[in-house]
Amino acid sequence: MRKLIAFPCEGETLAATLDEANGTTGVLIVSGGNEIRSGAHRGMAFLAKRLAATRTPVFRYDRRGVGDSTGHNGGFLSAQPDLIAAAATFRAAAPHITGIVGFGNCDAASTLALFGRAAGIDRIVLANPWLTEQTDDLPPAAAIRVRYQAALRDPATWQRALKGGISFRNFIRGLKKLSRTATEAESSLAARVLTALADWKTDAAIVLASGDATAIAFASAAGKGIMVETIETASHSFTGDAGTALENAIRRNLA
């Protein structure tokens, strides 16, 4: 059964959805960006329904200032109180659970890495963790580098250029970003998230979409020191068959 729950957080009221089930390990889904708790194209709502159908209770919520929740939206780095309140409410609403696995995509993954321990979460599954301190509307430098290298090796790129099918303005902007931007590993946000991940040790699982810019930036910053599972898709939100692969990755971390 699916039920709606309201709970307090620093003087505001947050909205949540609990998909009830009798399993003892629950999944707490944190929404990325400014997405509401149902997710892109209701993807998180469908995921919750499928997990609950196989005995896994699932809790989703809107942080302050997003969706049905009141307050100011201060972004993912201000969401520690929201996460702590959500985890506590989940345990109170499903008192039979003995462990919580947190799942988030993009900056929600970073929220979990940074603040999940403080919320009492036992294990985290992070998809495409966000490490970049955004200063413009371009992709992260690591993603630009990978895509330019691939494009320059492709004869079709040069054919498009000769026919005027490439924006040289955007190409030059990308080159300028590569020349002036330090690697994501050197940014303060990346350092914070990667340090937090090291503290999780084996209680963290990383899932990356192979063709996603955010995932490429994470892989570049993390290097070979962090084990990841890669799903072959360019979809940041793991649409289509990639969604099934992501769900299977989450299920493997419920034991």
Rank of each mutant, 00 (worst) to 15 (best):
L194P: 10
G240T: 12
T132W: 15
R60T: 08
T98A: 08
N105Q: 10
F168Q: 10
L47T: 10
S69V: 00
I29P: 02
L4N: 10
A182F: 05
K224S: 14
D137N: 15
T230I: 15
A185I: 09
M1R: 12
R55V: 00
G120D: 07
A113R: 00
S179V: 09
Q80N: 07
G33T: 02
N34I: 06
G225E: 12
R169N: 12
Y148K: 14
R64I: 00
N170K: 14
L114D: 02
R180I: 09
E247W: 08
Y148F: 14
I231C: 08
L126F: 05
E20L: 14
L83F: 05
D19T: 10
D68M: 00
F218C: 02
D122K: 02
T70P: 07
R60H: 08
V146K: 13
L178Y: 12
T54W: 01
A118K: 08
I216F: 06
A143V: 12
P81Q: 00
F218N: 04
S237A: 11
N170G: 15
F76C: 03
R251H: 06
K201D: 15
N22G: 13
A113H: 04
I121H: 05
A209V: 12
E20M: 11
F171P: 08
S210T: 13
G102F: 03
L254M: 01
I172Q: 11
A182G: 13
A94D: 10
I124M: 00
A143P: 15
T13C: 00
T132K: 09
F103N: 00
A15P: 07
F103W: 11
G74I: 01
D68L: 01
N253F: 04
K176G: 09
I250V: 13
T214A: 02
D241K: 14
T239I: 13
A217E: 08
S187T: 15
K49Y: 12
G43Y: 06
H72M: 06
D154W: 07
F90T: 01
G211D: 07
T17G: 08
T13V: 12
D82K: 00
T25D: 07
S210K: 13
E10C: 03
N248P: 07
R252P: 06
L28A: 06
A113K: 01
A143E: 09
G99C: 06
T89L: 01
L138W: 12
T230Y: 15
A151V: 05
A15S: 14
R42W: 11
A150Q: 14
A87M: 04
R180W: 05
A88N: 11
L4W: 14
A205L: 09
V101P: 09
E186A: 10
G33Y: 01
M44P: 03
D122H: 13
R91H: 10
R2K: 14
L197P: 11
L14D: 02
G11H: 08
S179F: 11
A190H: 06
P155H: 09
I124H: 01
D241S: 15
S38Q: 12
K3W: 07
A204H: 05
